[in-house]
Design a protein around this nucleic acid. Structure first.
Lengths: 238, 238
DNA sequence: CGCGTCCTTGAACCGCGTCAAGCCAGGTGG
DNA sequence: CCACCTGGCTTGACGCGGTTCAAGGACGCG
């Protein structure tokens, strides 16, 4: 992990507009947090948070993408969710508890870390911040609950469509097509909750049906509408 | 739905100790909310919130139990989570959005409803309330993300053990055994994410192995430890 | 007593995961 | 520059686990 100098990345110089702190804290607190936070740059595949470590604070993704993962039996990994700029990693659990979920950068990412004490003070003095973060978790919870159903009821074909669409909803802000999925087969299958072989098969199907295109092993969504029809019966929330 | 008179159930007369409002609001706000909330009693199997309705506020479970459900394809239902006294139903989404998840009482339950405007004011003036609710959602999110992995990776046997244990963790506060599971086969299988036939088979297995006992179709956990061993490789978070 | 509901058990089918082999692109070293 | 190796991806074959279909039992209720 490359720890950058604290002062070089002051919040006032930060260009990110999605940051909860900058949006919902008083100027006074922005300055305070700016002094106390730590900003680090993670390269692709570097761990931002390790599974099983104690939660010492909150990570804010200033720039980049990450996957939130949870390991199961026999080396299996589940991608629980994907995150982008402005997202938060490391739910604040009950004080000092271990966090059973890890996070890994998918591309070079800039991440701010704010320790529990500092963020707690900010919460107490900036009700709007706490409120918006509550809403954020609430929204994530809805998405997560929706995914439980997907995992329980969908067949592999539907799971793949769902995984592709959730990438699209999250990362394709401008809603333009073709849209490139920036995940390798392993991550994509871990997200869909299936194995890589099945994923390959289904992708080939989709390719034949003209829903996606694959070149140089990179997947692009070309027909979002038809893809959506596959998952339609489930009323997916993204 | 039986709507009780507003004044009869003032917060100051309420005996519940787990209520977020009573714990974290100023006296002034408790009185205000007491006047504006609506308290209703739901009988078993009555809908507290309907899937697809607009979210007009938050439900607090004062007394009783409920299941939070989400319907899928072909009449399938997923029990997304179970709730008890002190829990919250109806995540506040982005303003006025439809809520894709429903809630049904599992037994006679008393539920308080607070509309969006009122609760928003309370949030802005009671930082501790907002903070605790944020923590609540954060905790629920962790549990939910853990369940995604369960659904994706567990086999039916493990899913059943997991479902039984999650009931136990939630409702068996005193941690005494045998502990009666108060769900019928349909609800239990919807919670586990499997069908009733499989559930039956696995329950018979567990019965033979002495992990549970079944009398008059009611399931009791007799050996929580051995049951936990089945799900142990997954590091379940409850 | 007959009916309906819920639960259990059996049997057959098939979707999915596993294993294994082959393909392709990129990197390395002779 | 080519041969070789490696890692990621694809495709096929097979067997198991789980879903589905169907029948029968247990129980409560009119």
């Amino acid at each position: 992990m490359i720890k950058s100098g604290v002062n070089k990345h002051g919040c006032n110089n930060c260009l990110t507009t999605d940051c909860f702190i900058k949006q919902y804290c008083s100027d006074e607190y922005i300055t305070l947090i700016s002094d106390l936070k730590e900003t680090s740059i993670y390269r692709e595949n570097q761990h931002i948070a390790h599974e099983g470590n104690v939660v010492l604070g909150l990570f804010f993704i200033q720039k980049g993408k990450a996957k939130v993962i949870s390991s199961g039996l026999g080396g299996k990994t589940q991608v629980v969710r994907l995150t982008k700029q402005g997202d938060i990693i490391g739910h604040r659990g009950y004080g000092g508890e271990k966090y059973p979920i890890g996070a890994v950068a998918l591309e070079e990412s800039t991440v701010c870390f704010i320790d529990n004490d500092t963020i707690y003070k900010a919460f107490m003095d900036n009700p709007k911040l706490t409120y918006e973060l509550m809403m954020y978790y609430s929204k994530e919870l809805r998405k997560s609950e929706s995914k439980i159903k997907s995992q329980a009821q969908m067949n592999v074909r539907e799971k793949v469509a769902d995984a592709l669409l959730s990438c699209n909803t999250l990362y394709n802000c401008k809603n333009t097509y073709p849209f490139l999925i920036q995940l390798n087969r392993q991550d994509l299958s871990d997200l869909a909750g299936i194995n890589t072989e099945q994923l390959s098969r289904i992708l080939s199907e989709f390719k034949k049906e003209g829903l996606i295109s694959v070149s140089k092993n990179e997947i692009s969504i070309t027909n979002q509408k038809s893809l959506s029809k596959i998952t339609a019966p489930f009323g997916i929330v993204e």
